[in-house]
Design a protein around this nucleic acid. Structure first.
Lengths: 341, 341
DNA sequence: TTGTACGCGTTATCAC
DNA sequence: GTGATAACGCGTACAA
């Protein structure tokens, strides 16, 4: 077996160059004559050299690792975000060490320690458990996506604009009353904008409206039961009126649509419905659901681009400490399907 | 700022021990007196020591990295598998370097090179692009999941048994004719078992049956159109008969159910339907869909457990070369919901 | 129980 | 354009 690993020393011996020259071949090839480049290139093939980035990292301190902590991969939103982030490898060359937090604060802290031990150059946080204040204290290039971000850089969907688009569409659909169905949301997280945008738009247009805030749980069954209950409530409170429903996410929207569809065998004219996220479930529902599409690809790209500039700054001989935080908003897009006109 | 990093040398100086003793404190604490352990523990706090695993890895050669190549994260199946694999960190302590292949063979080869350069100890492959023969040639502990596995170790769902369960259920549901709807599948990949299991079970029970093999494309729209067409075909060919549909995955099953439900306003008694995968879409459909549940948690765990034994063997002074490949099957579970009795 | 000296495979800093 | 030598931070004989 070819057990022994080939190193620069072996190549140097084989080619009668020094290790330095071999190193230069990789890092600054043009400083060698073309002829010598070819000699070394051939030696690499002859010896079947396998580069060792760990040694390289150790020597120069640039690990090219970025850590990611994501709350889960069960929600399509997080899976797709991770996908888009991983795909930036082609563009930026950073490798990713990924951890799933599962909403356990202490475990996530441990993950961060582990990541720091591996000398990651930067960190992307999607989970919500650790406060931005604590995150900032780690003193490492860091970007959070769509979460509380008072003390750290962030990329967020413009939830407010998304809600405005959704609400406006329902108004244009001539709904008599608008309902926003959501779970309890803290005011300091970006998705609170969905509530504000809904309320502001309704008031601005003088439309009758109501907020329905429930904690439906996580299982499909619980959500379905919750939507059933809300459906009965609406039927009783607003009989005969055209109801425009803005659901906080597509999972809820799908459940609600199923409830309505199974009662009526179709979506009656009395209901208009729009979700949020553009997750696959919206498109695959019994009737394709209108929704607000988060531009996950852009969120991911902007996050990495920002992180890369932060990491590059850190690498300079005299790094400028970041003077003010960057918060960037990405506008979502309205996706009209069959649950609105 | 605390820019300069604390090393064992600093701790040694601070405590008047040698670097070796500090090293031992971490790797074999009991070889020090309790008193001295406490002295060092205190020093770590005083100096705010941050461990450097990269240096450790470099010195002893054990990176504790495992590489993963997954085809995409769009399909819930892969996202959940990745999730379950990442969660084995708690159990085995291996960190994961994750790449998304996107079905590009040359790019995946490049990823593997990158992973090797980072001295990964093992590799888990979920993507299908690179042949098992080529994978085996990399000569590194390796496990593939649910793909062609002639020359490598693998963990697979027992697709045959899954199909038998699905088909048997449809037979018990007194279906007059059984239809298996699938896309073209190569015989050497595990999911071909779904076809064999269906055919064998039908023949064994002497039930009329038909295979419908189509390439429906990937978008929801294409799949929906394809299912519509198949629906019309079935209606015409088997009028009045109770049709038992075994769909190759839940996405197809959901589409087909939507087609039927929108025609009839419900699922008529003339149809029974079962999918495969137990993906979220099955549970969230207009009628919760019966399905064959892949035990993704077990697949992931078994894969890592096998990989760990391979990696451990490799670390021994005189590693036993693996004499024969291991292929392990995980039996899927029948999940009865509302599209079967 | 503790210390000395060297090795791991690169890059960086000087020289030439 | 090229080479010698010293880092980088830790593990590991071997010695005491």
């Amino acid at each position: 077996m070819d057990k022994k690993k080939i190193t620069f020393a072996d190549i140097a011996k084989y080619t009668n160059f020094s290790k330095t020259t071999i190193s230069r071949y990789f890092n600054d090839p043009d400083s060698l004559t073309l002829e010598n480049q070819e000699i070394i290139a051939q030696a690499l093939i002859d010896l079947d050299y396998q580069e060792n980035k760990l040694a390289k990292v150790f020597a120069n301190g640039k690990s090219e690792f970025v850590g990611i902590i994501v709350p889960n991969l069960y929600l399509h939103y997080y899976a797709e975000m991770l996908n888009q982030i991983l795909n930036t490898y082609e563009k930026f060359g950073y490798k990713f060490l990924v951890f799933v937090g599962n909403h356990q604060k202490e475990i996530e802290r441990q993950y961060i320690q582990e990541l720091l031990a591996y000398k990651i150059e930067g960190l992307i946080i999607l989970s919500h458990t650790i406060s931005s204040e604590e995150l900032a204290s780690y003193n490492i290039p860091l970007v959070v996506i769509e979460r509380e971000d008072r003390h750290v850089n962030s990329i967020n969907t413009d939830n407010y604009m998304g809600a405005v688009q959704a609400t406006s569409l329902l108004i244009r659909n001539h709904c008599d009353v608008l309902l926003h169905i959501n779970s309890p949301v803290a005011k300091d997280i970006p998705s609170y904008g969905r509530i504000q945008g809904f309320q502001d738009t309704c008031r601005e247009h003088g439309v009758e409206h109501e907020m329905i805030i429930r904690n439906p749980g996580h299982s499909h069954k619980e959500i379905h039961a919750c939507m059933s209950e809300i459906y009965e409530y609406m039927e009783q409170k607003y009989p005969g009126l055209r109801k425009g429903l803005f659901l906080a996410n597509d999972t809820m929207a799908n459940s609600m649509l199923n409830v309505i569809f199974r009662k009526h065998g179709s979506l009656p004219d009395e209901y208009r419905l729009i979700g949020f996220d553009d997750s696959p479930v919206a498109d695959r529902a019994i009737l394709p659901i209108s929704t607000i599409g988060q531009q996950i690809d852009k969120l991911a790209y902007e996050a990495m681009e920002l992180l890369v500039t932060l990491m590059n700054e850190r690498k300079k001989r005299r790094p400028m400490p970041q003077t003010e935080l960057i918060h960037k908003n990405i506008t979502p897009v309205l996706i009209r399907r069959e649950t609105t006109d």
